[in-house]
Every structure is written in structure tokens, then in C-alpha cells.
């Protein structure tokens, strides 16, 4: 297993508050890795630090063998690393097609953009139907599809997802998880932060359990499903 992404001693601070207190983890090529833990455990801060949305206080992040710790956010999507942010955050005032166009911002060749568009529309036929519609008028589930589709436009090697099932109807949640499995089948490596622990352990290969900004448990999905670290992490908050 080649690690696609590796952190060592990753630390994130917001002023005096330590959100992530020095964590080491790896995401291997072709894996689905779940990050689990209660609210405030530091999961979102970790993902945001990986993509440069919040500064890394100390420690290092390596992607494809290169140190990207302090790379600005805008350089990472073109390098193959992107994030589907928590709460979807589609551009409400842009059309579906424009949202997707922004996802492929780093791609210059018109033909390559058209190809990415086709790929995403194949993945999400509903987006093709609604391409001219403002993203703000889509349902929550469709917005999540758009947020994932937008991230897929850049052709990422590693796709990070922050709470992709949050606030969605159960049926849609199921579709999202099925989609993640399909994306992995298409060769994308996934790092997923999820509240839906049971369902994410069903699709994940491995997982890390975070609590209070530290990793308190790790292992294969099967091991974690029965582990005490996991139940402890949620009980302790």
C-alpha cells in the first residue's frame, strides 16, 4: 500500500484553542478511510488543514510524496486533492453547469472540461437535467450531488468529504454512501468524516477515531465497529 497522503504531528490551533493536537495518519491509494468521533473532536479541522483552508500550526502534510503543509488552498485542487466541504456550500447564485465549471477551474483545455462535464453528468443524470438551474433552487440531496460532482470535475486523486450525509433524508443518505463506493470503484481515494458511524464503517476499509484533537483509536473498519475506543470517543464527547 502506497500512502497517498501522510501527516505527522499535525496540529491546528484557533488562537489559544488547540483543535487538533498532533496527529499522525495515512490514507493509502484506493482506500476509503473514515474519520470518526464526536462533535468538536477535530475531524473537520483536520480536513480543512489538509486542503489549506485553515493554517497548519505545526507538523507536516505530505501528498504524493511532496510536502504540501503550507501550500495555499488554490494550488491543491489542480494537484489532485480536494474537499467537499461540510454543509455542501454549492454556489447558490451560479447555475449547476457554472458550479461544475468552477470545479474544473484549473483545467485550461476546453475539450478536457467538456470531458469532465460528461463524466459528472453520467454520474449524476439529475444534474444534467438541471444544468441551467440555479444551485440554490436544488433540493438538499441534489445540492450534495452537485457538491460532490463539482469536486469530481478536477479529476481528484484524493477526495475528502466532510459530513456528506448531514441533514439529508435517509433514502438520499443511502444514495450518497452507494455513490462513494462507486467513486472508489472508479479509482478515487476517499477520506470521509461522518456522523453516521455504522454506515461509514460498512463502506470504509480503515478508520481513525478522534477525541479531543487526538487519535484515540485506529484499525480496520471491522475492528473499529466493535472497538471500545469508538464507543468511548462518543461517550466522552
Amino acid at each position: 500500500m502506497t500512502p497517498l497522503l501522510r501527516t505527522s504531528g499535525l496540529m491546528v490551533r484557533y488562537g489559544p484553542v488547540e483543535a487538533v493536537r498532533g496527529i499522525d495518519f495515512e490514507i493509502g491509494e484506493g482506500e476509503i478511510v473514515a474519520f470518526l468521533g464526536a462533535n468538536g473532536a477535530g475531524k473537520s479541522s483536520t480536513l480543512n488543514a489538509l486542503v489549506g483552508l485553515v493554517p497548519v500550526h505545526s507538523g507536516t502534510v505530505e501528498f504524493l510524496g511532496r510536502d504540501i503543509t503550507h501550500d495555499p488552498a488554490e494550488t491543491l485542487a489542480p494537484a489532485g486533492l480536494t474537499l467537499v466541504p461540510e454543509g455542501r456550500r454549492v454556489f447558490n447564485t451560479l447555475s449547476v453547469a457554472e458550479n461544475l465549471r468552477m470545479g474544473a477551474y484549473g483545467i485550461r483545455e476546453k475539450a478536457a472540461v467538456a470531458e469532465a462535464w460528461d463524466r459528472v453528468y453520467d454520474l449524476f443524470p439529475i444534474l444534467a437535467e438541471r444544468r441551467g438551474q440555479f444551485a440554490g433552487t436544488l433540493s438538499g440531496g441534489q445540492q450534495q450531488m452537485l457538491a460532490i460532482g463539482r469536486a469530481m470535475m478536477s479529476g481528484p486523486k484524493l477526495l475528502l468529504l466532510d459530513e456528506p450525509s448531514l441533514g439529508l433524508a435517509p433514502l438520499i443518505v443511502e444514495q450518497v454512501f452507494e455513490l462513494l463506493v462507486r467513486l472508489r470503484g472508479a479509482g478515487v481515494t476517499l477520506g470521509v468524516v461522518e456522523q453516521n458511524v455504522a454506515r461509514s464503517l460498512q463502506i470504509a476499509d480503515r478508520g481513525y477515531v478522534l477525541s479531543g484533537g487526538r487519535i484515540v483509536g485506529q484499525g480496520s473498519a471491522a475492528e473499529l465497529a466493535t472497538s471500545e475506543a469508538l464507543s468511548g470517543a462518543y461517550l466522552d464527547g
Binding site: 486542503v51 489549506g52 483552508l53 495555499p72 488552498a73 488554490e74 494550488t75 491543491l76 485542487a77 489542480p78 480536494t82 474537499l83 466541504p85 456550500r89 454556489f91 447558490n92 447564485t93 451560479l94 457554472e98 458550479n99 468552477m102 470545479g103 477551474y105 484549473g106 463539482r150 478536477s154
Partner: peptide, 14 residues
């Protein structure tokens, strides 16, 4: 227009 709506996410897009 994208940056006006959500600058952080716009940067994520590159």
C-alpha cells in the same frame, strides 16, 4: 461571482 458568494470554497476549486 463564485468568489463573491463563498471565497473559501472558490479557493478550494483552484
Amino acid at each position: 461571482r463564485a468568489a463573491a458568494e463563498d471565497f473559501a470554497v472558490a479557493r478550494l476549486m483552484g
